[in-house]
Structure formats: structure tokens, C-alpha cells
């Protein structure tokens, strides 16, 4: 970016780097949620479906599929929060320019530190770790990276995730441009 070009990252936006949500309890997932996951993916692993099988391997009961550990449905992520830091998805609270409506999944890294059983109460905490701009063929993108920590009842961290989304100005995609599509 040349010195004359104005950055899309304002001081107000930059000020979000390092902001951390309070630790918040997550909605308890049910056997029905897991069944819907299995229906959607075909992942009928007995570890997620059969308590006796899971116990035979030393677990307290059936495990949550790894993708469902720290799972937050979009309906909750999109909820308006009066306290922005108490939102389940801090990234949605950031003051990005209004025309930055195209959201792309720019990658994620997840680490599972302990298995989690169905019915375990989990809680999570999020932090904005980076906000940067990058120029590409779709214009200037704003890349927001959020780190999430998920805790079990003993306050052990069971999952760590870093997820980056890229926001671009409103634009019709060509088939070559659009990637993951998921936020």
C-alpha cells in the first residue's frame, strides 16, 4: 500500500486487537444434536453413539465428535449482544466498513487437548488476536483472527482454535474466486 492510500483498518478497528470476552458457558449439546451431526456427515462412529463402547475404551461415556467440541450454532453467534465483548463471536462485533459484506473462511487451526464426553458442560473464551489488511484481486481484504479456548468443568482447556475470516467489499464472485464460503 502506498503512503497516499488510506488504510481500511481504522484506529477503532485496531483497538479490538487483544480484546477478550468473559468466560461464557456454552449450550449443552444433546444426543439429538449428535444424531443430526451423524445424519449430516455419515460419521456413525460408535465412539459418538454408544456409551458402552466408549466406556470399554476408558471414557466416562460416549464422546462428542471433535468438530462439535466448542460448537456454537450460527443463531447464537449472530445474536445481538448489548455488551459486545459478551458476544459468542467477537469478530461479528468489530466496526468494519459497512460495504464489507463478503465473508470468507480464510483458514483455521484447532487443537484438541482432551476428549469431551456428551453432556459435559463446557465454557469458552475468545480473543481477537489480529486484524490486518491485504490487497488481492478482490480488493483490499480485512483479515480478522480470533482465538478461542474451550474449558471443561475442571477448567482444563480442552480445545484451542485460531480461526481467520477475510472480509471483502460487496462483489459478485466468479467461480474461480469463491472458496470455503463459511464463516
Amino acid at each position: 500500500m502506498s503512503a497516499n492510500e488510506k488504510s481500511v483498518i481504522t484506529e477503532e478497528l485496531r483497538a479490538w486487537i487483544g480484546r477478550t470476552s468473559p468466560v461464557q458457558p456454552l449450550e449443552l449439546l444433546s444426543a439429538s444434536d449428535v444424531r443430526r451431526y451423524v445424519d449430516a456427515t455419515g460419521d456413525a462412529n460408535p465412539l459418538w453413539l454408544d456409551d458402552d463402547f466408549a466406556r470399554s475404551l476408558g471414557h466416562r461415556g460416549r464422546l462428542l465428535p471433535p468438530l462439535l467440541v466448542g460448537w456454537i450454532p450460527f443463531s447464537l453467534k449472530e445474536q445481538e449482544a448489548s455488551d459486545k465483548l459478551a458476544s459468542f463471536d467477537l469478530r461479528r462485533q468489530l466496526p468494519v466498513p459497512e460495504n464489507y459484506t463478503n465473508v470468507r473462511n480464510a483458514g483455521n487451526e484447532t487443537e484438541w487437548l482432551k476428549p469431551v464426553c456428551l453432556g459435559e458442560q463446557l465454557s469458552s473464551q475468545s480473543r481477537i488476536v489480529d486484524v490486518v489488511e491485504r490487497r488481492g484481486k478482490m480488493g483490499t481484504g480485512i483479515y480478522i483472527t480470533q482465538e478461542e479456548r474451550v474449558f471443561n468443568r475442571e477448567q482444563d482447556v480442552v480445545l484451542l482454535r485460531r480461526h481467520t475470516i477475510a472480509l471483502f467489499p460487496e462483489h459478485k464472485f466468479g467461480d474461480e474466486e469463491k472458496t470455503g464460503g463459511d464463516r
Partner: peptide, 26 residues
């Protein structure tokens, strides 16, 4: 993207079997 990741994870957890563990994925 999350759907595709779920299918990838299914492939991995099926392969490592019930005594294996997926520790990290990017």
C-alpha cells in the same frame, strides 16, 4: 467450509480408529 472439514475429520478419525486421537488440524 465446516461441512467439508467435517468430512475430512471423518476420514481421519475412521482411519486412526477408536484408540487413536485427532490432536491438531489446520
Amino acid at each position: 467450509g465446516a461441512y467439508r472439514q467435517a468430512l475430512l475429520m471423518r476420514m481421519l478419525t475412521d482411519w486412526i480408529g477408536p484408540r487413536g486421537m485427532l490432536r491438531k488440524l489446520s
